[in-house]
Simulated scan of single mutants.
Amino acid sequence: MKQTQRAELTAGSLKGHFLISMPSLQDPHFNHSVTYICDHSEDGAMGLVLNHPFSDINLGDIFEQLELEDVQGRSDEPVFAGGPVQQERGFVLHPTGFEGDSTLQVADDVSLTASRDVLISMAGGKGPQRAIVALGYAGWSAGQLEDEIANNSWITLPGDSVLLFDTPAHQRWSAAAERLGFDLNLLSSNAGHA
């Protein structure tokens, strides 16, 4: 049955969806995580973890490193560990409306920008007011994410901007679980497939 489920997942892209980690997923990068999938194709997937802020890095540190003056007072906003791949690279997930040098529209109301211009605009008070700034990303090779889903590491949920931008980071995993309609902590790591 796993092959059938994998074929179904491969046929449809999870771009613009959330991945909610199952309690059995013990990798520290993804334990109790909510990941937003920014790109997904037959070649693989890329996403950002939305609820693991760095304890020692905030947006002010990024502005300082880029020699930007924070005219909006956003320095205390968190910066997230977006995933274990290329942690020196920055990404900004934001509502559609800002168009930068490398902006990719992920969903009707969500875009991703990976160029410095979005941070310049944010520091100057002209960029997106609601944004998730992350260093690094989560990446999966062809078929890897589909296999992990088939092996009960993740549950998928259609993305929405309320959970993305209006829910505090420390509540995103439990809020996503509530939308699924059950308590993820009660699930066994040995769940089967019908």
Rank of each mutant, 00 (worst) to 15 (best):
T10I: 11
T10K: 13
T10P: 00
A11W: 01
A11P: 00
G12Q: 08
S13F: 10
L14V: 05
F18L: 06
L19R: 03
P23E: 11
P23A: 12
S24H: 06
Q26L: 14
D27F: 09
P28F: 04
H29M: 10
F30P: 03
N31H: 15
S33N: 10
V34H: 02
V34A: 02
S41L: 08
E42Y: 03
D43M: 08
G44H: 04
A45Q: 00
M46R: 05
V49M: 02
L50M: 13
L50T: 02
N51M: 09
H52V: 07
F54M: 09
S55E: 15
D56Y: 08
I57T: 13
D61P: 08
D61H: 13
D61C: 06
E64W: 01
Q65A: 15
E67H: 11
E67S: 14
E69L: 04
D70Y: 04
V71I: 14
G73V: 07
S75R: 10
D76R: 00
P78Y: 09
V79M: 07
V79S: 04
A81T: 05
G83D: 13
G83C: 13
Q87A: 09
E88H: 13
G90L: 11
F91K: 05
L93T: 09
P95K: 07
P95H: 07
F98E: 08
G100K: 05
T103N: 10
T103W: 10
L104E: 13
L104P: 00
Q105M: 12
Q105Y: 03
L112I: 06
S115R: 04
D117W: 10
V118H: 02
V118I: 15
L119M: 03
I120V: 15
I120P: 00
S121E: 15
S121D: 15
G125Q: 12
G125A: 12
K126D: 12
I132V: 15
A134E: 03
A134S: 15
Y137I: 09
G139R: 00
G139D: 06
W140M: 04
W140S: 07
G143A: 14
E146V: 06
E146Y: 03
E146H: 01
E146C: 01
E148G: 02
N152E: 08
W154G: 11
I155D: 00
I155F: 14
L157T: 08
D160I: 04
D160E: 15
S161T: 14
L163W: 07
F165M: 03
P168T: 03
H170C: 09
R172T: 01
W173P: 08
W173R: 06
A177F: 03
R179A: 06
L180R: 12
G181D: 11
F182G: 06
L187Q: 14
S188M: 10
A191I: 14
G192A: 07
H193L: 15
H193Q: 12
H193E: 12
H193S: 12
